[in-house]
Nucleic acid binder design. Sequence first.
DNA 1: TTCAGCCTTTCATACGTATGCAAAACAGGT
DNA 2: ACCTGTTTTGCATACGTATGAAAGGCTGAA
Lengths: 342, 342
Amino acid sequence: MANDKVTSNDVARLAGVSQSAVSRYFTPGTSVSKKTAEKIRAAAEELGYRPNVLARSLITGRSRIIGLVVAYLENYFYPEVVERLSKALQDQGYHVLVFISSIASENVDQITQEILDYQVDGIVLASANMSSELAARCHASGVPIVLFNRLQDDERLSAVTSDNRAGGRQLAELFVSLGHRRCGYIAGFEGASTQRDRERGFREGLEAAGLPLSAREVGNFRYEDAQAAARRMFAGPEHPDAVFVCNDHMAFAVMDVLRFELGLRIPDDVSVAGFDDVPPARWPAYNLTTIRQNVDDMVAETVATLMHSIKEGEGAARRITLDGALVLRGSTRAKALTEETR
Amino acid sequence: MANDKVTSNDVARLAGVSQSAVSRYFTPGTSVSKKTAEKIRAAAEELGYRPNVLARSLITGRSRIIGLVVAYLENYFYPEVVERLSKALQDQGYHVLVFISSIASENVDQITQEILDYQVDGIVLASANMSSELAARCHASGVPIVLFNRLQDDERLSAVTSDNRAGGRQLAELFVSLGHRRCGYIAGFEGASTQRDRERGFREGLEAAGLPLSAREVGNFRYEDAQAAARRMFAGPEHPDAVFVCNDHMAFAVMDVLRFELGLRIPDDVSVAGFDDVPPARWPAYNLTTIRQNVDDMVAETVATLMHSIKEGEGAARRITLDGALVLRGSTRAKALTEETR
DNA sequence: TTCAGCCTTTCATACGTATGCAAAACAGGT
DNA sequence: ACCTGTTTTGCATACGTATGAAAGGCTGAA
């Protein structure tokens, strides 16, 4: 790294100006005469000089780095988030330093410490929780945090989520309108706000129609755990005729078990719905009814929140809830069956 | 970021020692007496001090940042790579700064310039190419580059790939042994070495058995483009009875078209094989025969190559080719059909 | 107790850059 | 030509930290 390092002093010497002029040339909003600017541009080009972002950060207090914590990329939803968030921040002159945490968030505090070592300008937590002690620490350091697709009871943390509760309620209402009377739910990771809110909405929707939740299992947001959950749920003689699976990723697993292990037909025997609308939900093999999370808008709101906090300092935390959209596909019945046709 | 910033000078004051002692306490391999160490530890803990990685990089010439360029995360293969590479580097005390490029690599040079601004200790290019001008630039800066799952003719660039050519040949041999006589190939992005090598191996394997490639289309590594490619390939009365699709991601698209649009049975009417063995290849909905890329070993070799280059400087570029493994699943025939049963 | 060798500590400086301030230069009007 | 106001420039310093060199302290052997 130390070889052939070109500094602003080298450029200044070649251009016959001061280092200060070179710095001003590369700093927006400062004044440099046309003549001086041309000398500097030519010298910088000849030497291949570009300012050192890290050295700048010492002076400006701005590293142009955003720390991003993701728990797992196995679920198609999060690669999409990483990709779009990186691009959107890249367009704003920031770059994403990626940290991988566990699903249960037990190492997020340690990771956040490491993130702070890099003097990041902000942190995005995608599907992970942070201790309030660390939240206070970030707050004291002036580092804004945005929870992506996760909620937490801490007024210092901004959050951008879909309306998970409304989405769960929508699916309950859908099942009811399709004539389903035995509805099951497969939960994600119990510590996640998305899991809690989606279930809450689903239960509320069923209760409004006078129906209980007839079966519940836990899939921990993992394909294999969701397979096992489906096996448990459909092991007895009485099983649900409709299942809301907390996210698409697990819904694929449930569908695979129903079809290929239990010989059940979707949606003839069981309707299945998920949440997210990740790419495979659109693939004919799954053709999954789901609630679409508007990733583009979520990313845009996250970036806007971060940029605002970074520029204005402090500010109250923002809680942004975006509407999801019900997407009907072939995994749920097309219409309610009449009693006769059963 | 400027609020409440605790520096090594604050710790030194509180502990009653010099800033230099504080620095040495946090620098492995330096000497500090037990007494002084305890004073510093207590002061640092009380003030919540941790060294500033970026300030350190000015002195040490080491940022502990690795730039990672990925072209798209749509293909399940790359999220897995990002996750594992980030973890492996995290374990070595490095962190990954992510940059998203386009599939055709036309903006990789600009991105690499931006990466260098961050004084990265190394760069990993996952499924992307770099101009030789930029390669020279990185070489001059002493920044090691490792191509992941991509090859390029530049002796300054290290690379870690699977043996794509052997994998292609294995699939040709498999098709031949299963009695297939009309074999098709759906290519990825034409500018990618993986696409070229897999096709070359496939063609060689067919030629060794005296068979021509009977159909070829291009899918550009994208689901939708692969769907279109499958439609074109199977539009006429004569179509292949076996298809090698350049990667799993596109193979899913081809399978979906064959089954749900053309009413063809897999593998009864057409055998389909992919390359990568990404998670959905194992899901019962696809159950795809494929060549497994050993991601764990590829990541380990990439990290080892980077660490070696960073520690030893210069060194010759390393080209590491790992064997893939043929994984037989239900998308290819179980055995050759005899002429009678046809 | 003294001496030599090794360990520990502090001082001064450097890393690459931005910025406040004072001085110099420039531009337009009288 | 002189004056005033504005722009531009360079000097000096700071950001947070690591490190070479010199000085001081410690330890064990004679």
